[in-house]
Design a protein around this nucleic acid. Structure first.
Length: 363
DNA sequence: CTCTGAGCTAGGC
DNA sequence: GCCTAGATCAGAG
């Protein structure tokens, strides 16, 4: 029988905890552009941008998006390619594609307003439990607790939850605690306060417990376990991939192609790629066979790119002429150097463009 | 250089 | 209902 410190029955303690947290938040919150006046559109935009992204990294993108797409209609009417292009460099491009799809649905099916209803909100592309709770609580003051990485950490320490936070079962327990703790009167402020506390005080390393407004109730603090919590098991090892990236050059134009509709980096543009292995990537022997009839102008040094589940190592090879067979079936285009900027090109291959245009290393 | 942490949704089984 | 793929970057060691 596990006895949790803060339980739904402890109404006096709960009120004091909420009051302490809200007071702390009022005095310590960061001034961020989307906090100025809470509108569902800027809340939505900021929440989506900040998924898997730090505030510092997301800020310039947020400003650019609000500038170019000041409301849901401008976003809905834009081309997907333009949105992907604005998103370039932020990663997790599905977020941008879903943002666009959802904007169209909001414009057409919801009269241009975000639905004030959990079920309807969850039906929108890119809106899951976290984002739905965030928008509904922050913009409409609806009583849904948000659980992001910050909140997970705060609660696992507060209630001294030792189970692996990677497990679904542990996440469920944390969600229940979050919903119990939530101020039903000020759910928006409370949710933001929990996330802000995790970002500023209840940090992953060296939490600032002496200044924490929740330390009086924190089991991990009392038991001196803040360094050990939350517990997270190791992820599975990353796969390794090796690519030759072939840059065909013909009369000062370069061949790029669009990736398929689905899967990794969907609908982004790139140079043709040949899969290979670590050994073959060390020298150009294997290339010479496949590229017979082409003159190799330049070969790059080794480049690497890390995805969440793949370690990619690749090298670029600049060759003259066009490929005999069409690489893949997707759309292909011959573009001039200046035109690269008109296409959403993922990070790994933008690196190749830099090599192509500036860097003479690995010649 | 490698490792870690930031961390939410969609879709497949 | 559970599990995994998706995807970038900064900072520590």
């Amino acid at each position: 029988m596990v006895r949790k410190y803060i339980t739904p029955g402890m109404t006096t303690q709960l009120s004091a905890l909420r009051r302490n947290l809200l007071n702390w938040f009022r005095q310590n919150k960061r001034e961020l552009p989307w906090r100025q006046k809470r509108h569902w559109y800027t809340t939505w935009l900021s929440e989506v941008i900040l998924q898997q992204t730090t505030v510092e990294q997301g800020l310039p993108y947020y400003h650019a998006f609000v500038e170019r797409f000041p409301n849901v209609h401008t976003l809905a009417e834009a081309e997907e390619q333009e949105i992907l292009h604005q998103w370039q460099g932020l990663g997790y491009y599905a977020r941008a594609r879903n943002l666009h799809k959802a904007a169209r649905q909001i414009a057409r099916q919801h009269h241009g307003r975000f639905p004030n209803d959990k079920k309807l909100a969850l039906a929108l592309p890119g809106i899951g439990p976290y984002t739905a709770a965030a928008i509904l609580s922050l913009s409409y003051n609806r009583p849904y607790a948000v659980v992001d990485g910050n909140v997970t950490r705060v609660i696992s320490r507060l209630q001294a939850i030792a189970e692996d936070i990677r497990l679904r079962s542990t996440q469920k327990i944390i969600e229940q605690h979050a919903q119990t703790l939530l101020s039903k009167k000020y759910p928006g402020a409370f949710n933001e306060a929990m996330m802000e506390l995790g970002a500023l005080v209840c940090t992953p390393v060296a939490p600032r417990c002496p200044v924490c407004p929740l330390s009086r109730w924190c089991l991990a603090y009392r038991q001196q376990k803040t360094d050990a919590l939350p517990f997270k098991s190791a992820p599975p090892p990353k796969k390794r991939q090796y690519h030759w990236v072939v840059v065909y050059e013909n009369t000062h134009r370069y061949l790029i192609r669009q990736r398929p509709e689905k899967g990794l980096l969907a609908r982004m543009w790139e140079f043709p790629v040949w899969e290979t292995d670590a050994r073959q990537l060390k020298n150009t022997d294997s290339l010479s066979v496949r590229l017979s009839g082409h003159r190799i102008s330049r070969v790059s040094g080794l480049m690497r790119h890390v995805y969440s589940h793949i370690n990619l190592q690749y090298r670029a090879v600049l060759v003259e002429g066009s490929p005999e067979e069409t690489p893949g079936t997707g759309t292909r285009k011959w573009v001039k150097k200046e035109e690269f900027n008109n296409y959403p090109i993922h990070k790994a291959h933008r690196h190749i463009i830099n090599w192509l245009l500036n860097d003479q290393k690995g010649r």
